[in-house]
Design a protein around this nucleic acid. Structure first.
Lengths: 340, 340
DNA sequence: CTGAAAGCGCTTACAG
DNA sequence: CTGAAAGCGCTTACAG
């Protein structure tokens, strides 16, 4: 009674109340809700009945204090507004949830220090893992998290942290494919719509495309836009498509850029895709499938990334690099379909 | 020492250790990290120094057991992949974070029972509030949450729950505007690209547009697509633009539909927007600003919604309906600009 | 302003 | 299989 007076007005039953009603010990109700604990069918029955009657829910906050598995996983995300990030966030929250894990999301803004602040938050909530989808946390911060017993999972981030898990995509095959597709479409002058943003995955795609092109005897004209969004693609179009010796095949670092480039090619230059210009993108965002674009692109393995995250969070395996493949998605922005 | 053996290997310091190092009581360190608690500058100093040395972070999980304000807020989201949902999720997580609150996200899939399961999860984590962005939780579930001392905030959901806070958008003015814009552009035959999905906000826009049109003497042809995405817009185009008496102005329930309709109008019917066809959308998603669309639309008040959410979470005010306005966003898909 | 003590809601050796 | 007890890491009246 007097204990009740101290409580905030929040009517959720506690394990103690359930125990009282069921006529068993506190430990018994705790065990009933712990997978694999030893309770007799009869006790379990009584507890379950009482729990149902009192509308009891294990307090995960309290459980998390002593039980690592019921601690949340922190997702450091930004740009949720952009299709690629939305797709990734959707897949990861879905898989985490299916595995019974709770996801806390931290919105990492452009601010360079916010990745650090975000990881500190994750520490405060004793997250069992932090998934870095955006930003580049300082090395020292990653160490702090790992020392605190947390796993740190970097998705498409640069490879500096030895103790963190890295999920990276294997872009080599995709970039070879891209050049092959353009060659088979009869392209003679290639171009690359690149970015000066400096994200590791962007830089890697850029480098590998250029290498693959060189191997096939191409010397692509390159334009580096400031970022990798729609406007950057349009900007690339205006830089690459003006003047003589217009390219007839261009690889865009992202689908968003490809959409901007295609629109500009059509509206500013009166070009038809793919007859005048072959275009390939990257990410396979929903817009790539829109009739206005019909973009041939490469799909990020969103589901596989999500499943890998869950696996890392659940396992005790030492930190390592996880490489995942992409898959080509043919549409109409490149002449001719896939080879048989 | 023996206590340490029981701990899982997680090196984060506790308040007790900080107290020991600083030579003060446990209460003192607790107070140092509680806003507005009474600690002398000297004690605070000592505690802060010790905390820094041990890399101490208040355990929010534990704090949440006794302190309601540091409990997480649950976000029930789905379709994060769609621009509108991404925009909303981004704004809400950003504002919540700025207010020092943690956001847990629950991915509500299409499954009708998952909204209920999601709210039960929120209960387990003792969320101080649940924000329902998708799905329609059963009345009984909402009551359970509220009885548990949790606030339930429904965004653009139907108005059945008396004890929940409702954030709704005032579509009346927008729909009057939409008809006015089309009339001023000289439209003679209006159409509505509607949806059979049955979401409250969709249904309300539909009804209000039709009413506004009737007031101006229009009798819009209506097509109800199954959902409210890109493909649904394309489907609407094929239904509305074929045959004689083609409409010259159409309102699409969502920007996504408008994009699909514009693409189909151009590619399937060879129509030019806005000279052959005036188009208005709703939501003001990033794609609406793309050069290929240049869509005139209405902006959901994403930021205002987010701020309202944090205000509700922080306050003790009784549940109520919060009405927010939209703002017209002129672009090129309707003839003539805004009135002065 | 401060500390000792009781409390929150859970888990988990320990002894039977 | 079961319960009493000690523990997790925090907060907050209470008395000084």
């Amino acid at each position: 009674m007097s204990a009740n007076l101290r409580k905030q007005p929040q009517g959720l039953a506690s394990a103690a109340e359930v125990a009282r009603l069921a006529g068993v010990s506190r430990s018994a109700v705790s065990r009933t809700f712990t997978d694999g604990a030893s309770v007799s069918a009869k006790t379990r029955e009584k507890v379950l009945a009482a729990a149902k009657e009192l509308n009891y829910h294990v307090n995960h906050l309290a459980r998390g204090i002593s039980k690592a598995e019921s601690r949340p996983v922190c997702l450091l995300a930004s740009n949720m507004t952009k299709p690629y990030h939305g797709l990734l966030l959707d897949a990861i929250t879905r898989e985490l949830q299916a595995a019974g894990r709770m996801a806390m999301v931290i919105n990492v803004t452009a601010d360079p220090e916010s990745a650090q602040a975000a990881l500190e938050q994750a520490l405060s909530y004793r997250a069992s893992a932090s998934v870095v989808m955006s930003g580049t946390p300082p090395e020292a911060m990653v160490s702090t998290c790992i020392d605190a017993g947390q796993r740190v999972i970097l998705i498409n981030r640069s490879g500096g942290h030895a103790d963190a898990d890295h999920i990276r995509i294997d872009y080599q095959a995709a970039m070879d494919d891209a050049v092959f597709m353009l060659k088979r479409a009869g392209c003679e002058r290639l171009a690359l719509a690149g970015s000066a943003k400096g994200t590791p995955s962007l830089m890697e795609r850029e480098r590998l495309f250029l290498e693959a092109a060189a191997k096939q005897g191409y010397a692509p004209r390159t334009f580096k836009a400031p970022n990798s969004n729609y406007d950057d693609g349009a900007q690339a179009a205006r830089a690459l498509l003006a003047g003589r010796d217009r390219p007839d095949g261009v690889f865009c670092l992202t689908d968003l850029m490809a959409c901007g480039l295609i629109d500009s090619a059509r509206l500013d230059f009166g070009l038809k895709v793919p007859t005048d210009l072959n275009v390939i993108g990257f990410d396979n965002i929903p817009q790539a499938a829109w009739a206005g674009y019909g973009l041939t692109t490469f799909a990020q393995p969103y589901e596989e990334i999500a499943r890998t995250v869950v696996r890392i969070v659940a396992d005790e395996t030492p930190a390592q690099v996880h490489s995942l493949p992409t898959a080509a998605q043919w549409r109409q922005s490149v002449l001719f379909g896939p080879a048989d």
